[in-house]
């Protein structure tokens, strides 16, 4: 893999708790079906990606150890047990976010570029150092937004930061931004109780990548440390898979067949739940 082919993708939102880590894990696991992928946790001091990916007991060295030269990248990278193309670079739990220097982060990302096709940066909430470092080197950004006022406002703020404080913006280059709406409830939006997809898209004015429905499958997956896209069939899994396909520019083929398969699986799931 040559450096130019590697793509750095930041998953960001401004607001906390909207599904950044869930989305980074789901995206990473699905991208790994298409090329070697690493998901990097930038939330220094509050690491959680390891837990969502189910590798929390295998963390020995972390991102900060690599930056400070206490460990090699190969020692810190954790290979996923379900997919050999998927890796995790965990955040440090004990250090603070000042450990992320621009040079340090750049060196690690350049090293990762040599062997990975997709580098997914899981940003912490807020617009402080960790979040700024996660987005600075990005080629593309996924903005995770809940259809709710505070999340939309913070997403707008982070879009402003991407436009003014990323490396690509400093170089006068375009940074591709994608809107990922999570925890969406079609029924509530139709009742006028929740911002609709169109509302959020119109307000934020960036292209829509996907819509993840509010789904019990997400908590179920995180409980067990399985990325949604590697877990049992669910509405959220299908939605994430579609979002990744759209990200990769893969046209939606035989959507009709997919439709009835999904419906059948959904039906079976409901049946399962009612009998359990």
């Amino acid at each position: 893999m040559t450096e130019s082919e590697a793509k750095i993708i930041v998953v960001t939102s401004g607001k906390g708790g909207v599904g950044k880590t869930t989305s980074a894990a789901a995206f990473g696991a699905e991208l790994a079906q298409h090329g070697k992928t690493v998901v990097v946790d930038f939330d220094i001091g509050l690491r959680n990606l390891d837990l969502i990916m189910g590798c929390e007991r295998r963390v020995i060295f972390d991102f900060v150890n690599v930056i400070q030269g206490d460990a090699n990248l190969s020692q810190a990278l954790i290979k996923d047990k379900r997919n050999e193309n998927l890796y995790v670079l965990p955040a440090s739990q004990t250090r603070d976010k000042d450990a992320l220097t621009k040079e340090g982060v750049e060196n690690v990302l350049n090293e990762l570029r040599k062997s990975f096709s997709y580098i997914v940066c899981d940003s912490p909430a807020g617009i402080e150092r960790g979040a700024l470092m996660a987005l600075y080197f990005a080629d593309e950004a996924i903005i995770v937004t809940n259809p709710e006022v505070s999340s939309v406002r913070d997403s707008d703020r982070i879009i402003g930061v991407l436009n003014s404080r990323s490396r690509r913006s400093e170089l006068g280059l375009e940074l591709k931004k994608h809107l990922l709406i999570t925890r969406y409830s079609k029924i509530r939006a139709e009742r006028g109780e929740m911002l609709s997809i169109g509302d959020v898209q119109e307000i934020l004015a960036i292209p829509l990548l996907g819509v993840i429905p509010e789904s019990p499958a997400v908590l179920n997956a995180s409980n067990r440390g399985v990325p949604v896209t590697l877990d049992n069939p669910s509405d959220a899994k299908v939605a994430y898979q579609r979002a990744v396909a759209s990200f990769l520019g893969i046209p939606e083929t035989d959507s009709g067949e997919k439709g009835w398969k999904t419906r059948l699986l959904d039906g079976l799931r409901i049946f399962n739940r009612s009998t359990a």
Binding site: E148, V149, V152, R153, D156, R157, G160, S164, A189, R191, G192, E193, M194, L195, S196, D199, I203
Partner: peptide
Amino acid sequence: QKSANIARERLQIVLSHQRMDDKTSD
């Protein structure tokens, strides 16, 4: 009025200010 409509209107107002602030701080 539906609450989603209120949310949309409030957001449009608050964001027009926020975007101006972003530009100014630049």
